[in-house]
């Protein structure tokens, strides 16, 4: 299949970027990233600069293959990362626009690669549980209800890709932050620091320059792991109790 790609090219963080057009011949069995590889090989053979984009696992679990495809983070397919998106979802002759994540807290480093270290600092601010040292505890010492375990696991499915921020018209990181807070706070081991964790992670999110959540719900639609905005309501609740509650 013959495709026209309009790709965001930007030489460096402080350079201006623009969309540039490329033609590429791909097979419908390729993943989107393999199609990008074909383009880059052609560029290299023509002694041109290949397009910089991030990728690692190529199996939908690392959260680095972050491209905005035709205005949608991770492309048109619901619940998939870019590496799991296949070219059979496009038609011969299509023009596809490829841009980097956009948010002030995710500055572009080069072409399609953005700096997501702001997410790491949100995790450092509270994404952990404190445990006593010593013997490894017995695996079943703390009984956890099945429903609780499942909903904590749903939140834990977040791969930290940042599609939620890229989709959000406010550039807010609430879905990511709430997924982390819910994943820990829904389990007894994470309960102890739940309210304080919510406050410190939200404060760090604000300090990084992410916007405020106005409940548009765009994040939930684009999240490749289909994390629910119910987690955001849970985070709002524990954030409020960190301010007004006794459990600081």
């Amino acid at each position: 299949m013959k495709l026209t790609l309009k790709i965001w090219r930007q030489k460096g963080a402080d350079k201006k970027g623009q969309l540039e057009s490329y033609n590429v011949e791909a097979s419908e069995h390729m993943s989107f990233l393999e199609m990008m590889d074909v383009l880059n090989e052609e560029l290299i053979s023509k002694k041109e600069e290949p397009v910089a984009f991030e990728h690692d696992c190529r199996e939908g679990i690392c959260g680095t293959c972050n491209l905005v495809i035709d205005g949608r983070p991770h492309g048109p397919q619901q619940g998939t990362t870019t590496c799991q998106l296949h070219m059979r979802h496009f038609k011969d002759g299509d023009t596809i626009t490829v841009e980097p994540w956009r948010a002030k807290a995710f500055p572009v480093i080069k072409d399609l690669v953005v700096d997501r270290s702001s997410f790491d600092r949100i995790i450092q601010a509270g994404g952990y549980v404190s445990v006593n040292t010593g013997q490894a505890p017995d695996g079943n010492a703390i009984p956890i209800e099945k429903d609780e375990a499942l909903s904590a696991f749903d939140a834990a499915a977040c791969i930290g890709c940042g599609a939620c921020v890229a989709a959000c018209p406010n550039g807010s990181a609430m879905l990511f932050t709430s997924a982390k807070v819910a994943h820990l706070g829904k389990l007894p081991q994470g309960q102890v620091e739940h309210a304080a964790r919510s406050k410190s992670m939200v404060d760090q999110m604000d300090a990084e320059g992410f916007g405020n959540c106005s409940n548009t719900g765009a994040c939930e639609v684009e999240c490749p792991k289909e994390i629910s905005i119910n987690n955001i309501a849970m985070l709002n609740r524990s954030y409020l109790s960190s301010i007004f509650g006794s459990n600081k």
Binding site: D70, G71, E99, R102, K104, A105, N170, G171, S172, N212
Partner: peptide, 12 residues
């Protein structure tokens, strides 16, 4: 504040 936190609109 939210508008500046986004800072850019996707072209498509």
């Amino acid at each position: 504040k939210n508008r500046s936190a986004k800072g850019y609109k996707y072209s498509k």
